[in-house]
Structures are given as structure tokens and as C-alpha cells.
Nucleic acid binder design. Structure first.
Length: 639
RNA sequence: GCUGCCGUAGCUCAGUGGUAGAGCACUCCCUUGGUAAGGGAGAGGUCGGAGGUUCAAGCCCUCUCGGCAGCACCA
């Protein structure tokens, strides 16, 4: 037992019987066992020497069982209501579960409520989940006869000799590894079917599309309510909604996948850009600007035309002559490197660019300003010698982590992944080069002590990459920064430098971005701060507004003082009530309102009112400017 | 791109074959009010686009463009 005690029970005693023996209440509350650290059915027979822990609904592992069982109950409900439906798989996932069905008619929202009602019936019946072990032959012939062809495919893929477990709940059963709760009644009622969407069988676009029903399930009503409330909150801070409300940008169908930046949004964009520019120049980068359009020959040489061409915008000039819109900046930066003869003394050469790239993303991939067809990368390419790779990668990690922190993302919101070589048909360069490149990045990650996860097959066609992912408000993970090690492009585009010995060598190229796409990062920032930016980022830092029009002239003099000090300020002298004006600017998330009336004019003062705070601060004009300037300061790092 | 849903006023949305609606925003008038909505009046629509069915289409059908939720993709 967890408390260190030992219990002796007759052979064949199940976990559930043990729980009841310890205490009747525990017997009722028990939902599963942990036997020697592994979660098992309550009905599992105990073996001599088992370390036993009895799990109740309050245990954190209970959620996974509840969700998985809810998926089973849903599958039964669906097959009762829609007998011609085939079941496939239905796992528990973060916050809930899903089940994929094959059915010729689509599920409608009304179907979802019918299914939910039927699920509640099944739960009320409280049938036991009973585990059975079948032979592979029996399982295959049973499911074949039922017409469950997807299940048959799953069973056929199971290794020979492996026991095939079936879980029965009343008249219904499903192939399942388990474990399960003791009965359907233990699922509880705190669940909700959320949505239906298509999903490819086995996650492959070549396979038929199934219908996936998503649901959420929790231990109790309060947890469910909290979760639904969290979803509402996430919706409130959705960058698409806030972008409109805060007058930052808009999008329209004539230019799908692109952004019209409005004055405030563009101010935010430029603020971030100049913040980055300062950091980059300070870290030894030299900024460049390269063309958007190129003759196809450049992309053919780089490999983009063949390996990335499907995602490129191409312009046909007739006579087989094509221009390509750049999807990446790397080939261009190599052209700059190649101008004139480079010496080993020039290395590492760090070329940065706020590069405008265009990629023909699939229509379904686009998402607000997070995933676009036209975007700006905070891109750079570092040309260096092989022995400089680790130091350059470390330098990048340090620069990047500092920038993330200053933008409001501490390290715990950061996940690091190492994407390794893709399939042979989708990569360039020899295996030796890939070995070297992957090792180079791994060494740097380990030197920095960053925890990371391997992603086999996910690398770029020219090299492996380290990906930095940030979590957004809705829990989605966005790839932001990336550093990629590339031995191939310098070769393909014939970049070289003169070494100490006078011979010619290939430089290594490190591709790196910190925010990734600035547009996407702004989307993440909007959701992260729910639009309430820190002063230094806010597009409009202060609005001066008047109690009555008598104070307009004074208000204008205050505005001029702010503008003269470089504070991004606007003025509102409309003849509306002060409460109305405050409400309006608060909804636009203006961080600071400066209210002036006759009283302030007479004393040469201003009243500061910060967003969301009722407390007011009365200061002399000079003190106010000093105070505001401190709050608007761009974060600095000296090291 | 695939599956499903959606597209009506600047925005959020109602409108199930019979004369296009609401709230907010906008314009004008009144109001000059001390910290999250003062009052009144007015203007605003080829119902995403094209074709079809029908005496009649915002509504039904086909195609198309765009959006949303997923899936696939994200070099």
C-alpha cells in the first residue's frame, strides 16, 4: 500500500474487493488501480507482491480514464442512433476526447445534442465495463461480420500472438487496450460534445476522411464550467477580434492571407521591428534588404524550385521564362555574401533582414495573422566556419531568450524541438553532411542545457533545425524562432571564402529567426496580453481628454508636450461626457488616459488614469512627462 | 487542399418562398456633463459573386470566392 503497510488477501481477490475491504466508502469511490505503477482496471486480480494504489475520481490520472470512457459511451450512443456507422479510434486528449466515425451522412449540430442525450441514458444504466480477451482470429471474424472494416484493419496490424482485449458495456463492445472505469455510471455527467470535423483515417491525407466528434469531459460540473469559461476568455482575447477592436489591421478577400496594417497596428509593427533592430546590431548583425522577385534560375540552383516550388508564387513571362517570388531570404543573402572575395577574417558574417516572403499556403492553413501568405521574417544568415557553429548557436540562444523575456515570454512558455533530416526524396546533400549538421545543433543545445524533443523527418530540405515554440492563450503551440544548420546551400550556390592557407573553403550557413514571422508574433502578443500591451509596445501610449471644451486649449498644450517628448499620444476633445470617452478608450486598450479640466489648467497639472484602474494620479506636467517616459522605456540589456 | 458549418448595414447578429430588420457605430441637433454608454433626429443594403428552379429567391439547386472548426500542410 502507498502508506507502506502490507495486506494479505485470498488468491483471486480483485482490486475492487480490496478497496471495499479497506473501507466501504473507498470501495464505492474506487475507479481504478495502480499496480506496480501501471494503471489497471479495478477488476484486475491482485498478484502476490503487487504494490497497490487505489485510484479515486480525485486522482489526477482519473481524468484520462473518464475521458476515454466518455469516448466509448459516445461511440455506443452513435451506433444506437446511427446503426450504419463504423467506429474507428477514440482516445482521450488534452481537455477531453474524440472519436472518429465512418458514416456517409454528415453529423449535424442537432445530431450532437441527440447523441449527448443518448449518452446520458447509457450512463444512467450504469452497465459494467467488462474486459474479455479474444484471439486475433475471433476478433477479426467478429468485426468483419459486423462490417467494422476499420477495426479489422487495426486488429490485423497488431503483432501476432498479442492478446486482443475487448471491453463490453452492456450490449455494446469495442476493441480497446483499456484500462477502463468499473462502469458507465462512473463517467459522470460533466461532459459536453463540442464540435464535429473531418479527420483523415490514420492521419494520412491519402486515406478516406472520417468524421471526428470532439468532446470535453471533467471530474465534476465545476471543472467543466471552468473549462467552458476559459474557452470564452480565449475567444475574448482572440487576435482577430482584438485586432479589429483596437484598430490595428484588417484583412479582406481580394488579398487573402495578407494584412492591411492600419496606423496603430503599423506603429506596433515598427516598434517591434526597431526593438529587434537594436538588439541585432548590438549582437554583431549587419542589416540588408534584398529583392522580392527573382528569375527562376536562382531558385533552381538553390533547390527551392524543385523541392519547394508547390508553395511558391510563380510569374510566367511567356517563352518558358519564369520569375519566382521569394519564399525565403537565404538564396538572396548568399548573393550578398558572394559579392567580392571573402576572407576567413570576415567570418562569422551575420546578415540580417526584415525580409518580406510569400508562400502559397493551402487555403485551410490560413489563420488570422498567425498563418499568412505574405509575411515578414526577422531573418538572418550567419556564414561561418565549421568550428564556429557551436559558439554561434549559443550566441543565438542567448540573444533569443533575452528578446522573448523582454516581450513577456519567460522560459516556461518556451518549448524546444530538434527537427531532423526529412525523407531522402525530400532533402539535398550527403548523409555525412546531415550527420555533421545534426550533431552540430545537438552539441549546441546540450552546451546551453536546453531541454528538447527530437522530431524525426521534420527538418528543412537543406538542413536540420532547432524550433522554438511558444504557447498562446488558447494553448496552441506556435513555432516562432528557429535556427537551422545548412551545409548544402553554400555548396549549391557556390559560396566560398579564402582560408588562412590561401585555399578556398565552403562556409557553413546558419539560418535563424527569432520571432519567426513578425505578423504571427504580433498575433501571439495580442492574445498573450489580451491587447493590454506594456506601455513601450502600445501603439497609442496616452490619450489626452477633456472634461469640458473649456479645457481644449490646455489639453492641446499637454498633447504637444507629450509629442515633443516622443510619447505616442492622441487627443480627444469631443463634446461627450468624460465617462463615455473613458469607456471608449478603455475598450481600445489605451494604457493611459490623461484627463484635464478647468481645475488642472489652473494648477498646471494633469490627472493620469491607467487602463483598468480606478485610482487617479495627479501630477504637475513636468513630473507627469518624467513618469510616463520611464514607463515607455524600451527594455535594454547590457551584457 | 480535404470534411463540416458560415457569408444579410462599418461591427455583432435576427430574418424557413410573398414589400429587407435590431443593437452598437456613423451624420446632424440639443446637452458642457469630473472618471467605463446623456437625449433626439437622420442617413446607411444588387442579402459574398455567377448561373439555375419558381408567378415570386436573402431563403431552394449548381458552380465559384472568402471566412470559421478540425484534418493534412507549415521547407
Amino acid at each position: 500500500m502507498p502508506d507502506g503497510k502490507t495486506m494479505t488477501v485470498p488468491t483471486g481477490t480483485t482490486g475492487g474487493e480490496l478497496a471495499s475491504k479497506i473501507a466501504k466508502s473507498l470501495g464505492n469511490a474506487a475507479i481504478a488501480l495502480k499496480l506496480d505503477g501501471k494503471v489497471c482496471d479495478l477488476a484486475t486480480e491482485l498478484q502476490d507482491g503487487n504494490a497497490v494504489e487505489i485510484l479515486t475520481r480525485d486522482h489526477e490520472l482519473a481524468l484520462e480514464l473518464i475521458r476515454h470512457d466518455t469516448a466509448h459511451v459516445m461511440a455506443e450512443a452513435v451506433q444506437i442512433l446511427f446503426p450504419n456507422t463504423q467506429v474507428t479510434i477514440g482516445p482521450s486528449i488534452e481537455n477531453g476526447f474524440y472519436y472518429d466515425f465512418h458514416k456517409s451522412e454528415p453529423f449535424t449540430p442537432e445530431d450532437l445534442s441527440k447523441i449527448e442525450a443518448k449518452m446520458r441514458d447509457i450512463i444512467a444504466k450504469n452497465e459494467n465495463f467488462v474486459r474479455e480477451v479474444w484471439s486475433k482470429e475471433k476478433a477479426i471474424s467478429f468485426f468483419k461480420e459486423k462490417g467494422e472494416l476499420f477495426k479489422v484493419e487495426l486488429i490485423e496490424a497488431l503483432p501476432e500472438g498479442e492478446p486482443i482485449s475487448i471491453y463490453r458495456q452492456g450490449d455494446w463492445l469495442d476493441l480497446c487496450r483499456g484500462p477502463h472505469l468499473p462502469s458507465t455510471g462512473k463517467v459522470g455527467t460533466s461532459f459536453k460534445l463540442m464540435s464535429v470535423a473531418g479527420a483523415y483515417w490514420r492521419g494520412d491525407a491519402k486515406n478516406p476522411m472520417l468524421q471526428r466528434i470532439y468532446g470535453t469531459a471533467w471530474r465534476n460540473q465545476k471543472e467543466l464550467d471552468d473549462y467552458l469559461h476559459m474557452l470564452e476568455e480565449a475567444e475574448r482575447r482572440d487576435h482577430r477580434r482584438l485586432g479589429k477592436e483596437m484598430k490595428l489591421f484588417h484583412q479582406q478577400e481580394e488579398s487573402a492571407g495578407n494584412i492591411f496594417w492600419h496606423p496603430r497596428g503599423w506603429t506596433l509593427f515598427r516598434t517591434i521591428e526597431s526593438f529587434l533592430r537594436g538588439r541585432f546590431l548590438n549582437d554583431g548583425y549587419r542589416e540588408v534588404k534584398t529583392p522580392i522577385l527573382y528569375d527562376s534560375s536562382l531558385f533552381k540552383a538553390s533547390g527551392h524550385w524543385d523541392l519547394y516550388g508547390d508553395n511558391m508564387f510563380k510569374v510566367n513571362l511567356g517563352d518558358e521564362k519564369y520569375l519566382g517570388v521569394k519564399p525565403m531570404n537565404c538564396p538572396a543573402h548568399v548573393q550578398i555574401f558572394k559579392q567580392g572575395i571573402k576572407s576567413y577574417r570576415d567570418l562569422p558574417l551575420r546578415l540580417s533582414e526584415f525580409g518580406c516572403c510569400h508562400r502559397n499556403e493551402a487555403s485551410g492553413a490560413m489563420h488570422g495573422i498567425m498563418r499568412l501568405r505574405g509575411f515578414t521574417q526577422d531573418d538572418a544568415h550567419i556564414f561561418c566556419r565549421e568550428d564556429q557553429i557551436t559558439q554561434e548557436a549559443l550566441r543565438y540562444f542567448k540573444l533569443q531568450i533575452g528578446i522573448y523575456e523582454d516581450l513577456g515570454f519567460p522560459r516556461d512558455r518556451l518549448k524546444v524541438k530538434l527537427a531532423l533530416r526529412p525523407d531522402e526524396s525530400k532533402r539535398v546533400g550527403s548523409d555525412e553532411l546531415w550527420d555533421k549538421a545534426e550533431k552540430g545543433l545537438r552539441d549546441a543545445l546540450e552546451a546551453e542545457g536546453l531541454e528538447y524533443e527530437d522530431l524525426p523527418g521534420e527538418g528543412a530540405f537543406y538542413g536540420p533545425k532547432v524550433e522554438f515554440h511558444l504557447m498562446d492563450a488558447i494553448g496552441r503551440s506556435w513555432q516562432c524562432g528557429t535556427i537551422q544548420l545548412d551545409f548544402n546551400l553554400p555548396e549549391r550556390l557556390d559560396a566560398e571564402y579564402v582560408g588562412e592557407d590561401g585555399a578556398r573553403y565552403r562556409p557553413v550557413m546558419l539560418h535563424r529567426a527569432i520571432l519567426g514571422a513578425i505578423e504571427r508574433f504580433i498575433g501571439i502578443l495580442i492574445e498573450h496580453y489580451s491587447g493590454k500591451f506594456p506601455m513601450w509596445l502600445a501603439p497609442v501610449q496616452a490619450v489626452v481628454t477633456t472634461i469640458t471644451n473649456d479645457a481644449d486649449a490646455y489639453a492641446n498644450s499637454v498633447l504637444k508636450m507629450l509629442l515633443d517628448n516622443g510619447i505616442r499620444a492622441e487627443i480627444d476633445t469631443r463634446s461627450e461626457k468624460i465617462g463615455y470617452k473613458i469607456r471608449e478608450h478603455s475598450l481600445e486598450k489605451i494604457p493611459l488616459l490623461i484627463v484635464v479640466g478647468k481645475k488642472e489648467e489652473e494648477s498646471n497639472q494633469v490627472v493620469l488614469r491607467y487602463l483598468g484602474e480606478e485610482q487617479q494620479l495627479t501630477l504637475s506636467c513636468a513630473d507627469a512627462v518624467k513618469h510616463i517616459l520611464e514607463q515607455c522605456a524600451i527594455p535594454q540589456r547590457k551584457d
